[in-house]
């Protein structure tokens, strides 16, 4: 698997896939996409990078342990639900903040934060599974 071409090519491919995954995540509310799909794409990116260049370099690249990322995702997912308490509404009632910046309408919302949480959970958990299995192959 570790051909020179693959090893040279993989970092760029992975970076592009992560970028694409974020794009898929953000457009998810209006077009096909969302946190689950984005997360899976990013996890695949990590897996490809891991196969090509070794798990150690992936772990260096993402700085945090994948399960920490996953846990953080779950945390902000739950946190997004609590914001509605400030307006005395039930848990997970969605809150919207829509404004214009440089002539573009930007919609910030708790479902978006929640979707980011989903994304991080999936990247972290699936990435962790893939990386730990790859690690077994290389050790």
């Amino acid at each position: 698997m570790r051909t020179v071409i693959f090893r040279t090519f993989a970092p760029y491919l992975s970076a592009l896939m992560v970028l694409f995954s974020i794009f898929v995540l953000l457009r998810g509310h209006n077009e096909p996409g969302g946190g689950f799909i984005g997360g899976l794409i990013a996890a695949s990116a990590l897996a490809i990078f891991g196969i090509a260049c070794g798990v150690a370099s992936v772990r260096r690249a993402i700085v945090f342990h994948p399960m920490s990322i996953s846990g953080f995702g779950l945390f902000i997912g739950a946190l997004a639900g609590t914001l509605s308490f400030f307006k005395d509404q039930p848990f997970m009632t969605s809150q919207w903040l829509i404004f214009e910046m440089f002539g573009v309408e930007i919609a910030l919302s708790t479902p978006l934060i929640f979707d980011i949480g989903v994304y991080l959970v999936v990247v972290g958990a699936i990435g962790s599974i893939a990386l730990s299995l790859e690690e077994r192959e290389t050790d």
Partner: peptide
């Protein structure tokens, strides 16, 4: 089904390991 796919994959991975 969307969440079911992801969860069944997680558990497939778990069972595999």
């Amino acid at each position: 089904v969307l969440t079911a796919i992801v969860i069944s994959f997680s558990f497939f991975a778990f069972l595999l390991v």
